[in-house]
Design a protein around this nucleic acid. Structure first.
Length: 753
DNA sequence: ATTCTGAGCCAC
DNA sequence: AAACGTGGCTCAGAAT
């Protein structure tokens, strides 16, 4: 059999006429092939993981007689050779059959406490009963995934005391029993009432959908998706695809096998068109599972009172902040973007022409060289400058060569411009929401393992969203304040260093913030014994060498960089860098002990705590044993061991960084909640954005000095680290990034009258 | 034609 | 021996 396979493969490759006879005899052979032989032939080929899985499913189903080969096509005399393509077509047929039988089974086994509500009187009575429950589970089904356009087609409610799960279909559900859309009003007192608390899975979505109907979902007490992330931020390690989907969590934690919407109905299915008997069992199961997940999670989290308190008072309250932040969105100056984009395009074009002319003689391909292709550019550029380049990394490889070679200087500028226009200036204008006419970002509170926000596009949403947290300075100029308003940005001055000062109680750092001095200079003073002024700023206002060096060492320390890397950063040898770090540790014993303590803790426990035990970062690899490698470390046969050991090193590096980054994120989040509360008391005030250590407000442009003072107080007083005062820098802008101090603002206002 | 991955680079 | 933490987007090139 092995031999046959090899011959077959060769036959495909060799099409010369002399082999025609051989081919014919082989075809005959193939037609006599048994199904088992065909499977061996097909499975011995190269397949993707998903194809391989499908092929095995089909093979099993065929051997169990669940499904057979495709029927003979009309007009054909004999069965074609069994092929991979046919097997995959059979798989589609099979999965359709399975989906249908699964749905039938679901409906047949609808629990007796799942109730479909299609009568106005029944709905009113249900709301009355729900008002007597202390806490319920809520979920919505909708026409689509655009929270500014789509509408609710059904609401699920779980009443835990009554122990009944309801599904209430509304128009435009495609069934005459669905309630008229306006009857969603009957739910208003329940949804807007704060006496009945609510549990949801991914609450932000349902909050936004109710808002579409003019109903505010108030009293949210728990989000089972968000809470799961608090309980295990590493869920994707075990469930790579949509790890926080309700159905996956139910399958894993409630031992309740469940299918996602897509698995059950296929991609692109519309909920409004699903028959009501199926909609009931699916919809009611949603809040049923959400409620059970809530019980499981709250019992577990209650064992950690600080985490419980933090989750329920900060992260849950934050949902309302995010809802407003995302809905408020941004306004872009499209005229500016267009003009700026044209200017960049012209610059890019002339640079491109010059570089192509210069580099073409060194390019081996037939087509014109693509300047964006590393594969083409690396060899061509290496030849052009007569030096083998390891990569095309702008910062590390190209920048040091730019003064020697004009082509590299021009290439760097070309890369900068095309990145700027391609990712930002030309792209962002296309993402305006057709209905709201604004640009909407996303602030994902479970997007990072450290508690920071991530920003970008929500996979589930059909709203065009963008990452607002990585906009470069030149792109920020497109963002303008709404008419009659200004943007006021306030950052936490040296947030992470203050956090470390407090957590470590390092005297040099505590002293720095007490005296209002520069922390890096204070560390340098401690290390060198030189006077403060001498290690801080030069007479011309620039940083001293010592301050610069200390800033780099600080980062290396916090990120757990090796001596090798620090040497690279400082432009010294590994040995020199190691000596420097050693001496630095000796001169700062308290800070040093704190850093070592973090590593000890994570090695013993496999996790670290963020400020006041409010969140955990789980780093299980920190507890692993290193795998001993006897021989050449780079030998490919040790790949598994290297990866294993690398994970341990990574976990140890992350221990300190997670504590610092996470604790700082907690400070930012608490400040956001308080700022949002404050904005609600002020006409025309709103939060506009957050970028890790920075909050940006939008406020009416006739603001006063007292208003600025109020923002300052929100920043400095909302959340403090013991023993360290907060600091903030405030700027006023009408265009993002083009700021002035409040003093300058008021001065220019007086001058212009 | 669509989906995935890696390189590279934007932010803090 | 390896060698910097947290993210997201674009493009090229490959895989499907």
């Amino acid at each position: 059999m092995q031999l046959n396979i090899r011959l077959n493969t060769e036959a495909v490759a060799d099409t010369s006429a002399s082999d025609a006879l051989k081919d014919a005899s082989k075809r005959k052979q193939a037609s006599n092939e048994t199904l088992d032989e065909a499977w061996v032939r097909i499975l011995s080929g190269k397949h993707s993981d998903s194809d391989l899985r499908k092929l095995h499913e089909v093979k099993r189903a065929m051997s169990e007689g669940i499904i057979g080969r495709e029927p003979l096509k009309v007009g054909k005399k004999s069965m074609p050779k069994f092929s991979k393509a046919e097997a995959l077509r059979i798989w589609s047929q099979l999965s359709e059959m399975q989906r249908e039988s699964k749905l039938a089974e679901l409906v047949a086994n609808t629990p007796s406490n799942y109730v479909l509500v299609t009568d106005v009187g029944e709905l009113k009575a249900l709301v009355d009963r729900a008002m007597n429950e202390p806490i319920i589970a809520v979920d919505t089904e909708t026409t689509g995934l655009d929270v500014y356009v789509d509408v609710i087609v059904g609401v699920s409610l779980t009443l835990p005391i009554e122990n009944v799960h309801y599904y209430i279909p509304f128009e435009p559900t495609n069934d005459e029993r669905a309630l008229p859309a306006e009857h969603i009003e009957i739910l208003r007192p329940l949804i807007e009432g704060t006496s009945v608390k609510k549990v949801l899975h991914n609450a932000l979505y349902d909050m936004a959908m109710f808002r579409r109907h003019g109903i505010e979902l108030l009293g949210v007490a728990w989000d089972t998706q968000h809470a799961m992330h608090m309980l295990n931020e590493n869920e994707s390690d075990t469930t790579p695809n949509k790890p926080y989907a309700l159905k996956h969590l139910a399958t894993k934690y409630l031992k309740e096998p469940s299918d996602t919407f897509g698995e059950l109905f296929g991609r692109g299915a519309k909920f409004a068109e699903i028959p009501l008997d199926i909609a009931l069992v699916y919809g009611a199961k949603d809040t049923d599972l959400t409620w059970r997940l809530y019980e499981f999670q709250s019992q577990h989290l209650a064992k950690y009172p600080e985490m419980y308190e933090y989750y329920t008072t900060v992260e849950v309250a934050l949902l309302y902040v995010i809802l407003d932040l995302e809905e408020n969105g941004y306004i872009l100056d499209l005229d500016f973007a267009k003009q700026y984009g044209q200017q960049l395009a012209e610059q890019a074009e002339s640079l491109k022409a010059w570089i192509i002319e210069f580099i073409s003689p060194y390019h081996e391909g037939e087509d014109v060289i693509n300047l964006n292709s590393g594969q083409q550019m690396k060899p061509a550029l290496s030849k052009a400058i007569g030096k083998e380049l390891p990569n095309l990394d702008a910062k590390r490889t190209l920048k040091p060569l730019k003064d020697k070679h004009e082509v590299i200087a021009k290439l760097l500028e070309y890369k900068r411009i095309t990145k700027l226009s391609g990712t930002y200036i030309d792209t962002l204008p296309t993402k305006q929401h057709p209905k709201t006419k604004r640009w909407h970002s996303r602030f994902n509170p479970m997007g990072t393992v450290t508690a920071r926000f991530s920003s970008g596009k929500d996979d589930e949403s059909s709203v065009e969203q963008f990452n607002v947290q990585n906009q470069p300075y030149d792109a920020r100029k497109m963002f303008v304040a709404p008419k009659g308003k200004v943007l006021v940005s306030a950052d936490f001055k040296a947030q992470e260093i203050r956090c470390v000062a407090s957590m470590s109680q390092e005297p040099a750092l505590l002293e720095a913030f007490k005296l209002g001095r520069d922390p890096y200079a204070m560390l340098a003073m401690q290390y060198t014994g030189l006077p403060y002024e001498q290690v801080n700023k030069n007479p011309d206002g620039s940083d001293t060498e010592w301050r610069k060096k200390m800033k780099v060492a600080w980062l290396a320390w916090l990120y757990g960089a090796s001596d090798f890397t620090l040497g690279d950063w400082l432009g010294t040898t590994k040995t020199e860098a190691g000596k420097f770090m050693g001496e630095l540790k000796e001169s700062l014993p308290t800070l040093s002990a704190w850093l070592d303590g973090n590593v000890d803790f994570v090695k013993r426990n496999g996790y670290v705590w963020m400020h006041k035990n409010q969140r955990k970062r789980r780093l299980p690899a920190a507890k692993w044993k290193r795998k001993f490698i006897n021989g050449d470390y780079n030998d490919p046969k040790f790949a598994t061991e290297r990866i294993h050991n690398g994970k341990i090193s990574g976990a140890l590096r992350m221990a300190t960084n997670a504590r610092v980054q996470g604790s700082s994120a907690i400070q930012t989040k608490v400040t956001m909640v308080k700022s949002h509360e404050y904005c609600k008391t002020r006409e025309g005030w709103a939060l506009w954005a957050t970028v890790h250590d920075e909050l940006i407000f939008e406020i009416p442009d006739d603001f006063t000095r007292e208003d600025i003072e109020a923002i300052r107080k929100l920043m400095t007083d909302s959340y403090t680290f013991e023993g360290v005062e907060n600091g903030t820098d405030i700027e006023v802008m009408t265009v993002w990034g083009e700021g002035m101090t409040p003093t300058e603002w008021f001065k220019s206002k007086e001058e212009t009258g």
